[in-house]
Amino acid sequence: MLYIGATIFVLFLAIDEPEHKVWNGLFWVTQLFICINAVAKSFLQESRGRMLYFYSIVSPAHFVLAKLLFNSLLMLLMSLLSLLLFSLLMGSPLARPWSFMGLVLLGGWSLSMVFTFLAAIAARAQQNAAIMAVLGFPLIIPQLILLMKISNAAFNPVITFKATDLLLLGALDVLVGTMAVILFPFLWKD
């Protein structure tokens, strides 16, 4: 929370009232970093003992689904907060705030899904968050490109949202979810 506030405040001090392309770019980059910081904790903070406890009470698929769900909710909250702060501090060039909000929620959800699974991998590698960035950035670029492209429509009343793009984003999320359920049991065993 403090992280969101501080980041956006620094951006606010550095530039005021950016034009909409810059606004869009900054917003998604901020989202990306918020997501890494929020979600990375979920696996890296778990102690060995607690993992062993979870191991004894639930199946890996349930465990990873619970993690995904929790991180998605967390990220949705964070996304809303950062959208609010962005609009307060940096001005709001949005032509369609409600649809943009929907998109932000969808985007936050996909970001959190991908990074939850990567956090699981990074935790197995016993590394800090740095390896998560190395692993995650190339994977997340396609989704970010897609998100920025779709969200451009929210700034301009003339362009309409394309249903196929949104479906594609949803399909990617479903893909990540299934991959996580299939692959997590392999990471889980010690």
């Binding site: 991998i121 197995r124 692993l135 994977l139 396609p142 893909l175 991959m179 692959l183 392999f186």
Partner: peptide, 18 residues
């Protein structure tokens, strides 16, 4: 094990993307 998991996951994300 970890790198195989990452390989599968990355491939599944990458190929739709490119």
């Amino acid at each position: 094990r970890v790198s195989a998991v990452y390989n599968v996951f990355a491939y599944a994300m990458l190929f739709p993307a490119i």
